[in-house]
Design a protein around this nucleic acid. Structure first.
Length: 316
DNA sequence: CCGTAGTTTCCTGATT
DNA sequence: TAATCAGGAAACTACG
């Protein structure tokens, strides 16, 4: 029911949606009118959008490609055009009138058939998004600098470099859980000749290559806590034993290692004094905003509310 | 400089 | 008794 629920406080993608549509027109895609007619349900409810910065954050680069809507697929395509300064007709949007799930199931061959030479770029970028970044996660493949840090919980080996960090699951695999904005920029730098340095507030002040066509979101500290939690849940193989789903379809989950999660969150925020006590206070603030719902009587158990996005299995 | 969002920190008291 | 939950209050910080 709320796959494209427009009631959440900030479907602030309106400007972007307009941009995409304009872009489609400019690109003289022969089926642009088709695109317009097939605008998915995101065209509904605009007028009711309460443009709050609270949810500026939930856009294509903040959720796993698997969960993208058709619109988010187009956003991604548009983004690639913009960031690679590609000619608009390089990517036939009409060939990508599909949701993220479908997109993720496409082979390289299918991408090439759909988008010609650009297909390879799309494919490799998507593979990267699928396996290395996602949701609030992102990475710098060229910056996998592992800096060992002490962890109270011995099962938790976390390494950091700037905004990103690597989480060693303790099972021999080192994976990334990074900031989404960083990931976005990493993707850009990855596919453009001029390499951009990792995300940092310092860098942000000096860099001016970020495409302006993508509206700046009010997400001052990178991934929000609830997104961070969601991403851990969406990566059970990467973050084993930290948080688990109690009821996947209902969005109910439970902290298994509350302090370990708090440490991980603290690491992300560069705050070594983070505790579950403090993290849980922030979680409780989400009740009022309906990002979380109360689960009475169960310790360490939370439930995603109607304003939490991107956690459902088939959210499109 | 100001206001706001999203925490962070601290605290008191209740519950498990 | 320790851990967790519930919220109030104030502080903090990036951002517009």
């Amino acid at each position: 029911m709320d796959g494209v629920e427009a009631t959440w406080t900030g479907v602030c993608c309106l400007p972007k949606q307009i941009m995409i549509l304009e872009g489609a027109g400019r690109m003289s895609i022969n089926s642009s009118s088709n695109l317009l007619h097939q605008q998915p349900s995101w065209t509904d409810g605009y007028s009711t959008c309460n443009v709050s910065s609270s949810f500026y954050g939930t856009q294509w680069h903040e959720i796993h490609p698997q969960y993208w809507t058709k619109f988010q697929v187009w956003e991604w395509l548009q983004h690639l055009l913009d960031t690679n300064q590609l000619d608009a007709n390089c990517i036939p949007f009409q060939e990508f009138d599909i949701n993220g799930e479908h997109l993720c199931s496409m082979s390289l061959q299918e991408f090439t058939q759909a988008a010609g030479t650009a297909g390879q770029l799309l494919y490799s970028n998507l593979q990267h998004l699928k396996w290395n970044g996602q949701c609030g996660s992102d990475m710098y493949q060229s910056h996998n600098v592992i800096v060992k840090t002490e962890q109270t919980d011995p099962s938790l080996m976390v390494s950091w470099k700037d905004d990103n960090y690597l989480y060693d699951s303790g099972y021999g695999s080192t994976v990334e859980l990074l900031d989404s904005k960083t990931f976005c920029r990493a993707q850009i730098s990855m596919t453009t000749p001029s390499h951009q340095p990792p995300d940092s507030s310092d860098v942000k002040k000096t860099q001016d290559h970020t495409p302006k066509s993508h509206t700046k979101k009010h997400n001052p500290r990178g991934t929000h806590l609830w997104e961070f939690i969601r991403d851990i849940l969406l990566n059970p193989e990467k973050y084993p034993g930290l948080i688990k789903w109690e009821d996947r379809s209902e969005g109910v989950f439970r902290f298994l290692k509350s302090e370990a999660v708090a440490q991980l969150w603290g690491k992300k925020k560069n705050n070594s004094s983070m505790t579950y006590e403090k993290l849980s206070r922030a979680m409780r603030y989400y009740y009022k905003r309906e990002i979380l719902e109360r689960v009475d009587g169960r310790r360490l158990v939370y439930k995603f509310g109607k304003n939490a996005r991107g956690w459902r299995e088939n959210e499109n």
